[in-house]
Simulated assay, not measured.
Amino acid sequence: MNKPDLSICIISCNQAQFIEHAVTSVLKQQTGYSLELIICDDNSADNTEQIISTLLAGTAIPFKFIRKESQAGPLHNGKDFFLLHAGGRYICWMDADDYWNYPAKVETQLKFLEQNPDYAGCFHDAEIKSLIHIQKENSHQLKTQTHGKWKFYSQFNHYSEDYFPWHALQRQIIPTASLIVRNKELHGFYERYKDINLSVSWALHLEFIKNSRFRYFNEPWSVYLDHKDGLSKKVNLLTFKLNNIKILEQLLTDSYYKTIIKDVYKAIAQEYYHLLHTREAQELPRKVFNTYCSLYKKWMKRAVEEEITSFKELNKSRQ
């Protein structure tokens, strides 16, 4: 059996109210490339499986429904897709509450990657549709973590046409449903990040873009649904920042990221900077808060020292 050109994964957990839109947006793609659809379900307690069975009955696109026997979290829910089932030359993934809104999205992105083998992937802007009414919410966490104040991802991320690893380190966030990348072996990735369950897509982006770059299309070809049941709305910012730092610390020993180590130092310092500004950090015991202050100072110092060294080397090379 021939491998598909593109393996598409939808990652779901109790998203029955949204997943029909996600699946339908895949089925509406108009492309000459071959596709396969794999739905990784994290033991949903709702009727997700029944909805999928109805939607995909008789579809021409090969599909698999993979259900976890117990909830494993986003990283391990998607693990079966990345390590076992994604047979395509290219892969992409989305959360079940996101969807595509441009029928030629896949055709356009795959055509670009076929013609430009020096790019590891390509992505695009995303429209934001918020179901959260900030004025009516009492939750500080929800108010600070909603994207409802923006209409597009490009309003709070400054994308260049060519997107490099240092852009990813700076958390110029790529909308999850927008990216298509060349398939690669990920066993090492899952071993390194086996204990994380937040910012999983960001960690994957950092992995796929190593030694390469992505192309950005300035078009909103997907929709991010901002709602109070999303995973990012259930975890406070302090926890998020500590998780992000944990991801970045893994890069300190990565052979590629060692070549741009000053950018890794900057990224870690930046995460501590934002951590210190969270309400949760401000409410910590003084000793704990001061520890985070010291860590911010440590990584900022390393970043500045490395930057100065690079400036001196550049100056020396020009003399």
Rank of each mutant, 00 (worst) to 15 (best):
Ser222Lys: 00
Ala126Phe: 04
Gln115Thr: 13
Ala126Ile: 03
Ser130Thr: 08
Lys105Phe: 13
Arg213Gly: 06
His85Met: 09
Gln50Ile: 09
Ser34Leu: 03
Thr146Gln: 07
Ile8Leu: 06
Asn315Phe: 13
Arg182Glu: 10
Ser53Ala: 14
Asp226Trp: 00
Ser201Pro: 03
Val235Asp: 03
Phe81Tyr: 08
Ala72Met: 09
Ile173Val: 14
Leu37Lys: 06
Tyr216Ile: 08
Leu206Phe: 01
Phe217Glu: 09
Gln109His: 09
Val23Ala: 01
Phe65Thr: 09
Leu252Met: 12
Asp42Phe: 04
Leu169Met: 01
Arg302Glu: 12
Leu27Phe: 05
Gln17Met: 11
Gly78Gln: 08
Arg279Ile: 11
Lys105Gln: 11
Val23Trp: 04
Ala60Tyr: 12
Ser310Leu: 14
Gln71Ser: 12
Cys13Ile: 12
Lys3Met: 10
Lys316Cys: 10
Trp100Phe: 08
Lys105Thr: 12
Lys151Pro: 02
His274Ser: 15
Gln30Leu: 10
Tyr33His: 08
Ile180Asn: 03
His227Met: 07
Phe65Pro: 03
Gln319Leu: 15
Lys3Gly: 05
Tyr193Cys: 07
Trp221Arg: 09
Glu36His: 09
Leu84Val: 11
Asp46Val: 01
Asn236Gly: 02
Ala120Tyr: 04
Ile174Glu: 00
Cys13Phe: 10
Gln115Tyr: 06
Cys9Trp: 01
Val304Ala: 10
Ile61Lys: 05
Leu6Arg: 04
Thr253Val: 11
Lys79Asp: 08
Lys246Ile: 04
Ala120Ile: 05
Glu305Pro: 04
Phe82Asp: 01
Thr144Phe: 14
Tyr119Met: 07
Glu191His: 14
Gln170Met: 12
